[in-house]
Design a protein around this nucleic acid. Structure first.
Lengths: 152, 152
DNA sequence: TCAGGTCTTTCATATTTATGCAAAATAGCT
DNA sequence: AGCTATTTTGCATAAATATGAAAGACCTGA
């Protein structure tokens, strides 16, 4: 597929070059014989959740998304997949049902991730209640959990 | 001082609201009786190294800088301050002289920080050599080290 | 207090990034 | 293949962000 491949290139470019503007991606990709416009790059960046970081020396550059503590995340993913039963949302709450005994562990892991969306977490034997900071953030968090549950 | 205070407010706003555009900061600050323009916010954001993150639900929002591994960073700071003797740069290299015995530890700590600027690190008894990915990145790294050495 | 430096802010605007919409490409179906 | 639905892209442009230059604020020392 076309898009995937391009995004792979983008990822590669990220680590080896100093990329200050989206147009830089366009140029660099052109050099690799991949024709794209800035518009597409903008969408790729959104997809890949890349960020434009102000660097210490006064410039800006694009960079990979905030690396979560991959350890905790890995554990979280496993726990989630192992113990997950169901979930529901209402207002700023996400309520996750898990197999008995897994609530507290999951709650702790979610805490440990320091997701900016979450205001607080509490878990009993088989339930985890996550309170988000806003409605929008509740959606974000859902997405995140969704991903952990399904993706790769 | 004025700027400091505003930036403190900004930091506070970050965690409680969904901020999608710099103008949002302007509005929110205005609500707190702080008058600023978007231009100033843009500069604050650069100062504070905030980033605009594409969020899972399709929007964007500003967020705190990539969280440093505060543990390692603290150790690094201490080691650096305790053992630092001198440093020099040339091309993509930063060479740090430290008190005898501290080289390897410092090198390891720097590795552990996973600074995106650094390509690799090697340390002997009293020296650490850091190889950066580019000239610009060498400057960035210097800045970083400078800060660790001097700031707060 | 004033002159001269430094820092900070605004204004105006250049630069960069995001996006609606239509076209093109890609995938599924049958 | 042929047709329809979905995804992806480019174009044009809107929206958002960054920045030079001038003005104002704030030091500091004489």
């Amino acid at each position: 597929m076309k898009k995937q491949e391009r995004q792979r290139y983008i990822k590669r470019l990220l680590s080896s070059n100093e990329i200050e503007r989206q147009e830089d991606f366009v140029s660099l990709l052109r050099a690799e014989n991949i024709e794209v416009t800035q518009a597409t790059i903008s969408r790729d960046i959104k997809d890949m959740q890349l960020v434009k970081v102000p660097s210490a020396t006064g410039g800006y550059h694009y960079s990979m998304p905030v690396q979560k503590q991959m350890d905790t995340e890995k554990k979280l993913k496993r726990t989630l997949r192992d113990a997950y039963v169901s979930y529901a949302t209402q207002d700023k709450f996400v309520l996750i049902k898990v197999l008995p005994g897994n609530g507290p562990a999951l709650a702790t892991l979610i805490e440990a991730m320091h997701y900016e969306e979450v205001f607080g977490t509490i878990g009993d034997d088989a339930t985890v209640l996550i309170i988000c900071k806003s409605l929008a953030m509740t959606l974000d968090l859902q997405q995140r959990l969704q991903r952990l549950l399904n993706d790769n």
